[in-house]
Simulated assay, not measured.
Amino acid sequence: MGDVYTAKESMEKVSEKMKNKKQEERFLSLIHEHHHRLYRIAFSYVKNKEDALDIIQESVYKGYKSYHKVKQPEYEKTWITKIVMNSAIDFIKKNKRVVPLEETVLENVASPTRDIVEDKLTVEEALDQLSEKQRAVVILRFFEDMKLAEIAEVLDAPVSTIKSLLYRALKQIEVDMKEADTYE
């Protein structure tokens, strides 16, 4: 009877290792598939290659440790994006600095926003005027081309809230631009 229990125990250990190996492969596949997008998100917060890479490294570590908590594979992208954003915000808070936006980031911005760059008020200044949540919504919507529903999942908020944040952010940018025009 002792041999049966030992064999059962061994089978459970092998099964657990196989499950862990599959999870590890899925996690590595997730990171490999989205590493450019995750880097862009981190970079959009810190505007520095080395800091962005540090954020990605920290995010991958956090993700690897907690990957077993992801119950539905269709939410993996949202889950890892949220980890990157939170890590970037934590990094900024920890280092207590405002980060300037680099010109290379501006090259990827849609044409209506390019007009902002040509005015006195740059995209950098406009984003700096926004709240943390508004900035996150604008970055995800216009820099990462995410749909409002996807942004809602990442920020764990209703779509209506995301719409309101985006509307208020765009309104704030418009007001700031009008104010900048009056100073010309």
Rank of each mutant, 00 (worst) to 15 (best):
E150P: 13
V138K: 01
E125M: 09
S164E: 07
L155W: 14
K133M: 07
D145C: 07
D145E: 11
A157T: 04
V137G: 05
R135T: 00
L140R: 05
F143D: 10
Q129S: 13
E144R: 15
M146E: 15
L165K: 04
E124F: 12
L148G: 00
L127K: 10
A149L: 11
A157I: 05
L166A: 03
Q129W: 00
A152E: 09
E153A: 13
S131Q: 07
E125C: 00
I151H: 02
R141A: 03
M146F: 12
E125G: 08
S160G: 06
E153R: 13
A126M: 06
P158V: 05
T161F: 06
S131D: 10
S131G: 08
D128K: 12
D156P: 00
K133Q: 06
V154R: 10
A136W: 04
P158S: 11
A149N: 13
I139A: 11
E124L: 03
K163W: 08
E144F: 12
V159P: 01
K133P: 00
E144A: 15
V159E: 02
S131W: 09
I151Q: 03
K163T: 11
A157R: 15
V159F: 00
Q134E: 11
P158F: 06
S131M: 04
K133T: 08
A136Q: 14
A157K: 10
E150Q: 15
F142W: 15
V159Q: 05
R135K: 01
S131I: 02
Q129I: 05
V138M: 06
A149I: 04
